[in-house]
């Protein structure tokens, strides 16, 4: 299963700059980023090619960071690609806590990253419908 890094950050100028500088110096590549903000603070979610190293580097600089299990599903980069995934999950009664995506090859392939409470179950129903699920290694080697 794939992982992302969840980092607590205050909603202030310069925090993301600081965070990305640490990861740059640690030689970590970031494939995707999203932020869940709640007013004056938020959680920055990073998809890094080396989650353990990213976590260590951030914690060493005083950030509170966690490795969080996510589900990475491959979808077609065309109308209906995203809908197909949510249709399967919705049909199985599985709730998505948070999601974001990125394009791997324009007009062909994209990846959807999801935080779910029922992650194993989601993987099962998606795989059963022929949706390709990426392992940690596959995700970073894209």
């Amino acid at each position: 299963m794939a992982h992302q890094i969840n980092v607590f950050a205050q909603n202030q100028p310069g925090r993301l700059e600081h965070m990305t500088k640490i990861l740059t110096e640690a030689g970590v590549n970031i494939r995707a980023i999203t932020i869940s903000g709640v007013g004056d603070f938020g959680v920055v979610k990073l998809l890094a090619d080396n989650p353990d190293l990213a976590c260590q580097a951030l914690e060493a600089e005083g950030f509170s960071a966690f490795k969080k299990e996510i589900l990475a599903a491959v979808m077609d980069d065309r109308p209906g690609g995203l809908h197909r995934i949510f249709n399967i999950l919705g049909g199985a009664g599985i709730n998505v806590e948070d999601a974001y995506g990125f394009v791997v090859k324009d007009r062909e392939t994209a990846v959807l990253l999801m935080e779910l409470s029922a992650i194993a179950e989601a993987e099962q129903v998606l795989a059963a419908e022929g949706v390709e699920i990426l392992s940690e290694r596959e995700l970073y080697e894209l």
Partner: peptide, 15 residues
């Protein structure tokens, strides 16, 4: 200060 002992990575926990 939010330290590792206070949460497990979810923003809702912090709210």
């Amino acid at each position: 200060e939010v330290t590792g002992g206070l949460w497990k990575g979810d923003v809702q926990e912090l709210s």
